[in-house]
Structures are given as C-alpha cells and as structure tokens.
Amino acid sequence: MELSVPLQGPGRGPGRLTLTLRYLRRNKSLLVGLALLAFLLIFSIGGSLVIDTSTRAYPLAAPSVQPPSAEYPLGTDKDGRDLLAVMVRGILLTGTVGVIAGSVGIVVGVVLGFLAGYYGGKVDSVIRWVTEVLITIPPLILQIIIASTIVDKNKVTIFTMAGVASILSWMGTARVVRSQVLTMRERTFVSVAKLSGMSNLEIIFKELMPNMLPYLAASFVGAVMGAIGATFGLEVLGLGPAREPTIGMTIRWAQFHSAIFNQWWWWVLWPSLALISIFASLSLINRGLDEIANPRVRRSE
C-alpha cells in the first residue's frame, strides 16, 4: 500500500478534477443532465434570494391573469400569483419533495436490501415477499387511496406529499441492492475481509457499499423521479397541497381554471417546461450513472 503513494503524488498525472471532467466529456448524458440540474438549482435557489417568493408566489400578490410583461416576465395567474416567483419556489418545493422521498427510499431500500442479501434465510424471504406484494400494487392507486383520506386539502403540506411518496419509493432499491449483495457475498474480497476479522457491519460499509455506489446513485435518482412523478399525479387529481405553489399544483390550478381555453398559455407553458426540464435532467443523469454501473451499455455508442 505504501509503495503506491509516491506514484500518485502531485504533478505525476492528471488530478482528480481533470479526470472527472475528462470522463464527463465522454459521458454526454451525465454532462447534459448535470448541467440542466445546475441551471435549475441556480434558477430556484438564486431566484429565491433575489425575489421575495414568500409573498409573490402566493395569491393576491399581483393583478390577475397578466400576460408576460416587463414587470411580470412570466405573467401572472388568475389568483394573482407572479408566475416567475411561482416557478422559482415551485421548482424548489417539487425538488424538496423528490429529495425527501428519494432519500427515505434509498435508506430503507439499502437497509432492507442488505439485510435480505447478506443474512439470507428467513429475513430474506420475509423482505422479498413484502417487496413482491408491494410491487404488485400500482403506486398511483395506493397513493390516491392514502391521500384521499386527508379530506381537508388545506392541511396537506409538501411533507405530507413526501411522506405519501416515500411509502412506495424503496422497493426498486431493495431489489437492486439485494441482488448486488448476493453476487458479491461469495467473492474473495469479502472472504478475505471475514477471515481478517472484520465485523459484518464493517464488511457492509467498507467492502460492499463502495462497490455499489453507482447503483445506489442511479437508484436514488430513480426514486427521486418516481416521487416527483407520483406527487405530480396526485396534484393534478386535486389531492395535492392546496396552499403551496408546487409545479404540479400550478398545472392543476391552470387546468382547474381552463387556462388553455381562455388563451392564458403562459400559465400552462412555464410549469410544463419546468417539469419537463426536471425530468429530462434526472433521466439523463440516471442514464449517465447507468453507463458507469454497466459498462456493457457503452459498447453500442
């Protein structure tokens, strides 16, 4: 181990950053996806520093249904929200829901996947059955049923949405992790670690986890996308947070007030563009990560 250190010393080769950048140039999906994500983050986080979104993104902050103008660059909606502020805040809120649900999904999925794959036996069968049963239930249906029990829509917050989306966000990760652990469990590096007296937890965190990082990252992005898609579905059905200007709720209100038939195109266009950018960015990142995890995919390009 000591021997290899001088070889990698400073000045001996390209640094980490250059290597990463060089890799990104080859992995175009990842590059474009990350760039789009960076743009969305700058727009929403930077935007909330410049614009007072806590008032302007809510009703009665501006005159009703104004087309885009110098004062309201993206126009306003029927309830008097400034759509620029709505977009800034909406991307942030929608992103938050996705990240919360995605994180819950990845943590639960990793824990259950490891338990099932590493310990096997009864633990494995129980976890596998629960996963199989839940995969049978169409996510939107279960979420509609849960969300419909909250009758007062004013009490629904983005955290409620994240909670509902979390319930079904972990199965994919659990499956991937379990199958990865199964293939790695019998490999020599794990046996060596065992023989050298590492505990199970150490093996999991020091030996198995690092090998699975690309899979975990792809699962995380997948779970975030799933959660954003699910909450969008609930929101357009009117089961979303009625008081929050998320992207889905904005589209819901535009539909509710027949924005298209009233020629208020800006009310529909901006949230649609925002949501398409979010999904496009995440799916490109996912594709790029997939390429790292399965080098096989590269061959056809």
Binding site: S29, I260, W265, I276, A280, L282, L284
Partner: peptide, 29 residues
Amino acid sequence: VKGMVTPLMVLAAVPAYLLGLLLIYFIAF
C-alpha cells in the same frame, strides 16, 4: 437511428399527462 434512443428516453421520463396538455394546446386548440 442509434441517436434516437436518448431523446425518446427523456420523453419517457415526462408524465403522459404533461405531453397530453401540450398536445391539447397545439393540436386541438
């Protein structure tokens, strides 16, 4: 033909509802 997969995949990430909304606006309305 090989390059078609990426745009199609991005499209696959967009909910059908949203695509429908755009189709209604441009084609029907």
